[in-house]
């Protein structure tokens, strides 16, 4: 029996997606806001106005294109955080006061620059850094994406590569870890041409944010899609059932049958 199962289990990929936390945490809401956090003091090497302009492209070209994922990343330009700690602080690894980078508002991903050398050690080749730094239970409350402002490495990238870097970091912010596949956006380094998500990325975002009966992309009727809840431990990300959509399909088929029969 085990042999039969092994035969059926056909390997098509050598690597797999990973998560950046052991509990599979994810944002509870279907829509998550992604904003650029403008510090009172301008960044030394990163143009946050440019980053703000690239944000929509980073979300729409990658994470918002996956039909099997319910996650919708909404970009809303930039906002003044009024807090230089985003620029100078150390990345907080947990909720509450930590004396470092502030925790963002619930359901927000803040993208900003940072020049703290603990985050980016001297001469660091890291372009950016992210952790979902406010997790409660199995829910991510918020995350901060820090772009390396200790040197000009991010600023020297092409516009397309900057988009890919931002999208990669947002991948971490929504709960994904790295992939060993160079075709994946979540590969640890920038590849020459990034046009789409790789299979690993798609599987990862589908695993974390699975669609639960999306009728032709319109969302589920009877309000079920808007009441999706996550982190309930059932492993399926929500209690939506598929009875009514399928029953409606049956009803429509039955009506077509009767109509066709009458006409003949």
């Amino acid at each position: 029996m085990k042999f039969l199962f092994s035969f059926l289990l056909l390997p098509t990929l050598a690597q797999a997606f990973t998560l950046n936390n052991s509990i599979g945490a994810r944002f509870k809401e279907k829509e998550v806001n992604v904003r650029v956090g403008m510090n009172p003091t301008p960044c030394d090497n990163v143009d946050l106005d440019e980053v703000s302009g690239l944000l929509s492209e980073a979300m729409d070209n990658f994470w918002n294109k996956v039909s099997t994922s319910r996650l919708e990343l909404k970009t809303s330009g930039s906002e003044n955080t009024g807090d230089d700690n985003y620029w100078t602080g150390e990345l907080c690894l947990s909720g509450g006061a930590c004396g470092g980078t502030p925790i963002p508002a619930p359901n927000d991903i803040i993208v900003t620059c940072n020049k703290n050398t603990t985050n980016f050690p001297g001469g660091s080749s890291l372009l950016a850094l992210t952790l979902p730094n406010d997790i409660s239970g199995k829910d991510i409350k918020g995350a901060v994406v820090l772009i390396n402002d200790t040197n000009g490495s991010f600023g020297a990238l092409s516009s397309k590569d900057k988009v890919a870097v931002i999208a990669h970091e947002v991948g971490h912010a929504i709960g994904l870890g790295h992939s060993e596949e160079s075709s994946a956006l979540m590969f640890y380094k920038v590849v020459p041409t990034r046009t789409n998500l790789g299979r690993d990325d798609r599987l990862g975002v589908t695993y974390l944010y699975p669609v639960q009966v999306d009728l032709f992309g319109a969302g589920c009727f009877l309000g079920t899609i808007s009441t999706l809840k996550s982190g309930d431990g059932d492993g399926d990300g929500g209690g939506t059932n598929t009875f009514w959509p399928t029953a409606l399909m049956g009803l429509l088929l039955a009506l077509v049958f009767k109509r066709t029969k009458k006409e003949t």
Binding site: L19, G24, S125, L127, G177, H178, K189, P210, Q212, G237
Partner: peptide, 18 residues
Amino acid sequence: GNGTSRFYIPAESRTSVN
């Protein structure tokens, strides 16, 4: 990119329905 980090393999079964 700057060393190694520990990442986690999913531990649950999750299903999407389109």
